[in-house]
Simulated scan of single mutants.
Amino acid sequence: MTKKILVTGADGFIGSHLTEELVRQGHDVRAFVFYNSFNSWGWLDQSTKEIKESLDIFSGDIRDPFGVKEAMKGCTHVLHLASLIAIPYSYHSPATYIDTNVNGTLNIVQAARELGVDKVVHTSTSEVYGTAQYVPIDENHPLQGQSPYSASKIGADQMALSFYRSFDTPVSVIRPFNTYGPRQSARAVIPTIISQLANGQTTIKLGAISPTRDFNYVQDTVSGFISVMNSEKSLGEVINVGSNYEVSIGETAEMIADIMGVNLTIETDEQRLRPEKSEVNRLWAENKKAKELIGWQPQYGGKDGFRRGLEETIEWFTNPKNLSQYKADVYNI
């Protein structure tokens, strides 16, 4: 059935892909984008004419409860992605993460309670688990705030779930592992590697390369959001969305270099290293709950799926028009 859906953070990496897919599926979508005087819609500016003409754009700030409630009026479903996500930035500006991630989520669930929306899907992150105490990481794994960012997301998750438990507000929490793909910020490791190589550098700068991650291609993350939204069984639940494939940062760089046909040398850049106790050394998703509860499974899982996702990502980044939007010679926090 067609739904009236508000997507917060619709101008961002995952949000823009999700917004476009919802429009393609025939839904009535209101895209909440961060207000700016340039009237920029972020990545939605690059959407096709047909998609842009189908969107109801709402420019606002997730930190403002009045604007958030106004944006939610008339919507049956809310997919809440708006947040600050860069870990290094959270080291020197932690208060902005509380304002945006915790208070922003409070604004969403409070308005949802008052307006009687049918469903709120709140976006978590695998960073809330910290370094794996056991693998694969399921939804019962302890939460560890190893950065101000992850601490703010733990707070936001618990705020969303508290409204489900306290007021029966229809909330579900999706917990994506490391999403990658076209449009991702160069603050993330895969775009960092690709953009440096695509600009002709064969010696690239990275932080720690021994940590492992569970990379999830953006189309799989998008389908996870839609599956959680559509499932009644997801109410009050936290659901991991991950590929169930663990790979190190170093191995990832080597795979990218192989696809791009480049002989790679990695140079450690001290400013890209996290403080020792803040580094998340291992992430590996258990996705059994998503498969059994909401019928979701990754289409880009395993080593072959990861390579296929990287090939599609590299194809996008190496398009000169797209590559020109990235500053490969500057560390993006």
Rank of each mutant, 00 (worst) to 15 (best):
I174K: 02
N178R: 15
N178Y: 10
P182W: 05
P182N: 14
R183I: 03
R183L: 14
R183A: 03
R183W: 07
R187D: 10
V189N: 04
P191G: 01
P191T: 08
I193L: 07
Q196V: 07
L197M: 09
A198C: 13
N199C: 12
G200C: 08
G200S: 08
T202W: 05
T202E: 05
T203V: 11
K205L: 13
L206T: 02
L206G: 04
G207S: 08
I209R: 04
S210D: 14
P211I: 04
N216M: 09
N216Q: 13
Y217F: 14
V218A: 11
V218E: 09
Q219V: 13
D220C: 03
V222A: 11
G224P: 04
F225P: 00
I226Q: 03
S227R: 09
S227D: 05
V228D: 11
V228R: 07
M229Y: 13
N230T: 01
S231D: 07
E232D: 10
S234F: 11
S234Q: 07
L235G: 00
L235T: 14
L235D: 05
N240M: 10
N240H: 11
V241R: 02
G242K: 05
N244Q: 09
N244M: 06
N244C: 11
N244V: 10
N244P: 06
Y245E: 08
I249F: 01
I249N: 00
E251Y: 03
E251T: 05
I256S: 04
A257Q: 01
A257H: 00
A257Y: 02
V262E: 11
V262K: 03
N263H: 13
N263V: 15
N263K: 15
T265N: 05
I266A: 04
E267R: 11
T268H: 09
E270P: 12
L273Q: 00
L273W: 02
E276S: 05
E276W: 12
S278V: 01
R282A: 07
R282E: 05
L283I: 15
W284C: 11
K288G: 02
K288L: 10
K288S: 11
K288N: 12
E292R: 12
L293I: 02
L293A: 04
I294R: 09
I294P: 06
W296Y: 15
Q297I: 08
G301L: 15
G302T: 04
G302P: 03
K303D: 15
K303T: 06
G305R: 03
G305A: 02
